Amino acid sequence: MLEHRDMLNGLTKKSSLQEKLINIHHSLSDRFPFVVRIAVAVYDHKTKVLKTFLHSSAEENPLEHYQSLLDNAPSLKSILKSAKPRVINDLLELEEITHEHTKKINAQGYRASYTLPIYNEGQFVGFLFFNADKKDVFNEEVLNELDLYAHIISLYVVNEFGAIETMNAAIKTTGNLSHIRDPETGKHLDRMSHYSRIIAKELADKYDLDDNYIEHIFMFAPLHDIGKIGIPDSILLKPAALNSDEMAVMQTHASIGSEMVSDLLQNFGLSSFEHVDVLHNIAMHHHEAVDGSGYPKGIKGNEIPLEARIIAVADVFDALTSKRCYKEAWSNEEAIETLIKLADVTLDKDCVNALVKNITDIEEVQIRFKE
């Protein structure tokens, strides 16, 4: 009997998207050792920004935490116009050699690339890159094999994003989506999601955060208050301050949210998708306080998961700078002054400083997602 080793057997096991990408790269390396990196960049249709997401290279990633307007990358944009993959067998001849991302790629020693667009039901999702450390290696024979791997990777990426979209759709079908019943609007969710990404990106070096984790914080941020679906309208929509009994009911939305996440994951068969713990932590702990005065658990300091501390700062800042039926919008200066006072009291100081340091980017988000 012929013994055969299944090179892609690792894909059948429960593993993260990052681990699956590395597994595929290892399989490819036996056939094409010159392929030294596989990477995925995802596209945000609302901001028209292309963001690094995943990579398989063991060495330092040349484009960690990188983003750029797609309009600023004409050669990539031309791929979408032609609807065809792009082969560059000598990156030193690339016209966009002056661009930052091209300089970093060349500095890492990559000499050829194969780039394919990723689509989901006809909608552009992002790009998949195969980088080689030798030029003139992507011939027709090689490309035919790479295409098979490329479509496998694309399916995994699309499935990951589709899982999150499925959860959002499941919540919307209840007819009582929290941010429809709540005075907080969809624009609030857009803003605080982008604030959260800005904060996480600033903290990336200190906390060793990769692009995959940062992107999941961005995608999960809109679900932080899903537990408000379980709060009565008389409390959720009350235009005045809540009394102590009403506040106690309101505070249950954190625990309700975590329970809803568990139910959604189980009912839609999504329990195995990546960073499910991050989603649970965001729903459960975004109202915890670093001094232990928060809810529902009263945990403090670093006991509070980082993703929840990030969401808390983003959420509070947008609440302060937004108009509500019970208050006028504060100026950014007033809001920042308050955040600084709350740092190391109820809010995480690192997260507050990360937002303040990037106030220019915060203001751009406010302009784009203005009510």
Rank of each mutant, 00 (worst) to 15 (best):
G186L: 08
T115L: 13
G162K: 05
K187G: 10
Y110I: 01
E121W: 08
I97D: 14
S193R: 06
N120R: 13
E184Q: 13
N139F: 01
L91Y: 07
Q108W: 06
Y114S: 10
F138L: 03
T115P: 13
G126P: 03
L94V: 13
K206G: 03
I171H: 02
D136K: 02
A169S: 01
L189V: 02
P183C: 11
T102S: 12
I152E: 03
D208C: 11
R111S: 02
T98S: 13
D190Y: 06
V125R: 02
A132Q: 07
L91G: 09
R181A: 05
E165T: 04
F129L: 01
H151T: 14
D136R: 08
S113K: 05
K201V: 00
D133C: 12
L177P: 08
N212K: 05
F124W: 03
E145R: 09
E100N: 10
F130W: 05
V125L: 08
I153S: 00
L94E: 12
L203I: 10
I152M: 14
K134D: 14
M167I: 11
I164E: 03
A170Q: 01
N176V: 15
S154C: 00
D205S: 04
S196M: 08
R111L: 12
D133I: 07
Y110C: 05
M192L: 15
G162V: 06
K201G: 07
D147H: 02
E160L: 05
V158C: 10
D133K: 08
K134M: 15
K172F: 09
T115V: 15
I180M: 08
P183G: 04
S193Q: 04
Y119T: 08
Y207H: 11
I171R: 11
F130G: 06
D182L: 10
S154F: 10
T102W: 10
L128P: 10
I97N: 15
E184I: 12
Y195L: 11
A163P: 06
K206C: 00
D205I: 05
N106K: 15
T174M: 03
E100S: 14
I153M: 00
A132Y: 03
T173P: 01
Q123F: 14
T115H: 07
G162N: 13
K187H: 12
G126Q: 01
L143N: 09
H188I: 01
V158Q: 13
Y207F: 11
S113R: 01
L148M: 04
K135E: 15
G175I: 08
M192E: 15
Q108A: 14
V137W: 03
E140M: 00
E140K: 12
N106P: 04
L203S: 11
L116R: 12
N139H: 08
G126A: 03
N168W: 08
S193T: 05
F127T: 02
D211Y: 03
K172T: 05
E95W: 12
D211N: 04
V137L: 07
T98P: 11
A204R: 01
H179S: 09
L148F: 13
L94R: 12
S154N: 09
E160N: 01
L91S: 09
T173D: 09
